[in-house]
Design a protein around this nucleic acid. Structure first.
Length: 692
DNA sequence: AAAGAATGGCTTTTT
DNA sequence: GCCATTCTTT
């Protein structure tokens, strides 16, 4: 372990062991290194029992990385250190104290989709129109309450408006359902431990004694529940070190409150504050641009990142004609980079909203540039995978209504609305789960199947269980008989799922269903586990936080997109957009492109957007704006309104190839292109296509 | 109950 | 313009 590699501020952050410590770590200031070194220092130099150390992160990925690094520094002794996300720690505490919170040991975890399903069902059972009472809004309201540690009782004191009264009603039922279903939602994983701590001081004391030294990463992103949770755990010994950057707080829409980090000194009066302002990541130009942008925020702690790195190239600014042109520009720049020997894995394309990836993907696909899209839940969000997981969940916890509703008729067993209605009535009346309400009919067959699988699940391995499920439920047979490409892809995905369970078993030995479900309930993306391939990375700026790339393309920097139009009317939200922009810029190590489009089709409408205000905030001497107007002239489209079309005529389109006119209207024609483009409306006489 | 048609809504989302 | 959910038809 080589502490000499740390700069003076980093060393101080590592070696200030006792008492509260606040580390304000700017982007690229070696934060991760400080965290891992500090843990190593505690164990190695201060003789602190690894069992007494707790390190909390927000993502599984961060936890996994930290664990790996510390294991490589300390050896196997590091496995005794509790390094996990807030939520994984919550699961651990609930597992160890389930009966104190009214749960059974085989509880399952609902993700936010499951939660929404449950809320939709409750609204339906209450005969409330989801058009008037938007299920998502209800869910967000309940989740927001839980993040602030308000249970339905607390909430009832604040519910005034008619909508809030409805939410209250739903919230009360929702709480009951979770207990009957023996299920916890994400928010419960924090709220329930806190409830236990408050009600059972001896339990809190137990964890305080266990976790004498606490480290929290990304502290600016903690919400009220996490804040209280940490405060309670650290109250006795106050050996708490929080690391974060208020300028990178970008999750307030999920309840994160960066005032937690700004107020730390106030909460822990004798704390030591350490500023990490030396940046090791980016060139001077990139860093200056980031500083230029963020200094326009009013609500922040003044801090200025600096670096010894070279000045570097200027930031390339390109204004494209439209979103297709934007994608083509990115493509041509990437091809140029790769031609010059750059690796694909050193290139990232960042955007504000997921919908923006589409055009880029099309361009990259067209030219066979290998890429991956992060965070679009490709895998776990697939229907067949969700169905399989629902089977696993209901086998483990038959009271799980959400999973039951998902798969009771998958594959089709002739169980429909009527059956569900009568089961629901019975379950509501007797306060039992839907599963327990089953006592006859076709649904009895389903119940027996689950019970049979449950018994089996205790005897065979996880991967074998998956096989048996696919077999006995008829999922496999149904897909195999379909003989379509889509069905084949689904089967492949299910095979892929088996390779995940196999992977678990290979690395951990026998994995129980319980262990597996706990883990995958808290993981949203399998891609987290493979990033060695040489691929261009596409992702939202949010998902890019904590990462760095040699070359970064920041696309869609337009008013309305970035900053997003929803933030226009709220100063606080605009500042969050600016922080997001700061995060985006500081991802780049060597080269940064800022790109936008003059016009863009958004939600099917054509819009013309001015360049983002954030571009104007960057000193123009840092920008290398290319002659985009020239580009536009080259690519400009003209329209000849005099051309008429007949149904059945063939046309050739610059981007989509040959197509057939299928209908003719006043100003537009509809053209059918071969799969996968399909039907498109085109403006008559547009120069992007011509008759053939 | 299942399949096809229409409606609507829409940022970000570590867990 | 695209998806998911809900409505309508068979």
């Amino acid at each position: 372990m080589d502490f000499d590699l740390l700069n003076e501020w980093q060393q101080e952050a590592v070696q200030t062991v006792d008492g509260p410590v606040l580390v304000l770590a700017g982007a690229g200031s070696g934060k991760t290194r400080v965290l891992t070194s500090r843990v190593a220092y505690l164990v190695n130099m201060c003789n602190i029992d690894p069992y007494n150390v707790l390190a909390i992160t927000f993502t599984n990925k961060a936890a996994k990385e930290m664990k790996e690094r510390i294991v490589s520094m300390l050896g196997p002794i590091a496995y005794d250190i509790q390094i996990s996300t807030f939520h994984a720690l919550g699961v651990l505490i609930v597992k160890e104290n389930y009966e104190k919170a009214g749960f059974k040991p085989n509880f399952t975890i609902l993700d936010s989709d499951d939660t929404l399903t449950l809320i939709r069902k409750i609204l339906k059972d209450l005969n409330l129109d989801p058009k008037i009472y938007n299920p998502k809004a209800v869910r967000n309201q309940i989740s927001g309450a839980k993040n602030n540690l308000f249970d339905s009782k607390d909430y009832s004191r604040y519910a005034n408006s008619e909508f809030e009264q409805i939410v209250l009603k739903v919230y009360e039922i929702y709480e009951q359902k979770l207990i009957v279903n023996n299920s916890l939602d994400f928010d419960d994983l924090l709220m329930i431990p806190i409830k236990i701590f408050k009600k059972h001081p001896e339990v809190l004391k137990h964890y305080q004694e266990r976790f004498k030294y606490i480290l929290i990463d990304e502290y600016q992103d903690t919400n009220e529940a996490q804040y209280i949770f940490v405060k309670m755990l650290s109250a006795k010994y106050k050996n708490i070190c929080v690391v974060g950057d208020n300028d990178q707080s970008i999750y307030s829409f999920r309840g994160a409150n960066y005032h937690n980090i700004l107020n730390f000194e106030h909460d822990y009066p004798n704390c030591k504050v350490i500023m990490l302002e030396k940046n090791y990541r980016s060139t001077k130009n990139i860093l200056s641009a980031a500083n230029n942008v963020i200094k326009n925020n009013k609500e922040r702690k003044d801090k200025n990142l600096w670096t010894d790195n070279i000045e570097g190239t200027k930031i390339k600014y390109h204004r494209a004609y439209d979103e297709k042109d934007e994608a083509n520009y990115v493509l041509s720049e990437i091809k140029e980079l790769i031609k010059n020997g750059e690796k694909s894995r050193d290139i990232a394309i960042l955007y504000r909203t997921n919908a923006q990836s589409r055009n880029i993907e099309e361009a990259l696909l067209r030219d066979n540039v290998p890429y991956r899209v992060i965070g679009s839940f490709y895998f776990y969000n697939r229907k067949e995978v969700k169905d399989l997981i629902a089977y696993l969940k209901i086998i483990y916890n038959p009271s799980d209504d959400v999973s039951l509703l998902r798969v009771i008729n998958v594959p089709k067993r002739g169980i429909g609305d009527k059956t569900i209605k009568s089961l629901t009535a019975k379950s509501n009346l007797e306060n039992i789960s839907l599963f327990d309400a089953i006592d006859s009919g076709k649904e009895q067959g389903f119940k027996d199947l689950i019970l049979e699988l449950k018994e089996l699940s205790e005897k065979i391995t996880l991967t074998e269980l998956v096989d048996v499920i696919l077999d006995k439920t008829g999922i496999k047979a149904e897909l195999e008989s379909e003989k379509s490409i889509e069905a084949d892809i689904r089967l492949e995905n299910l095979e892929e799922f088996k390779s995940i369970t196999k992977g678990y078993e290979e690395s951990k030995g026998i994995v129980s269903l319980e262990e597996f479900l706990n883990e995958i309930s808290l993981v949203s993306d399998v891609e987290e586990y493979k990033n060695n391939e040489d691929l261009v990375t596409l992702m939202t700026v949010h998902s890019a936080k904590g990462l760095e790339f040699k070359n970064v393309f920041l696309i869609g920097l337009e008013e309305g997109i970035f900053p997003h139009q929803n933030s226009f009317f709220d100063a606080g939200e605009l500042e969050e957009e600016r922080r997001l922009c700061y995060v985006a810029i500081t991802r780049a190590k060597e080269r940064l492109w800022i790109i936008n489009a003059k016009r863009r089709t958004l939600y099917g409408l054509d819009s013309v957007n001015p360049p983002s205000r954030f571009i104007a905030e960057i000193d123009s001497s840092l920008l290398d704006a290319d002659s985009f107007e020239k580009e536009v002239v080259n690519k400009s489209y003209s329209i000849d309104e005099n051309i008429e079309y007949q149904i059945g005529e063939h046309i050739m389109h610059n981007n989509h190839g040959e197509g057939v006119v299928v209908s003719v209207e006043d100003k537009v024609i509809t053209v059918a292109f071969p799969h996968p483009i399909g039907i498109m409306k085109l403006i008559k006489g547009h120069s992007s296509f011509h008759k053939i």
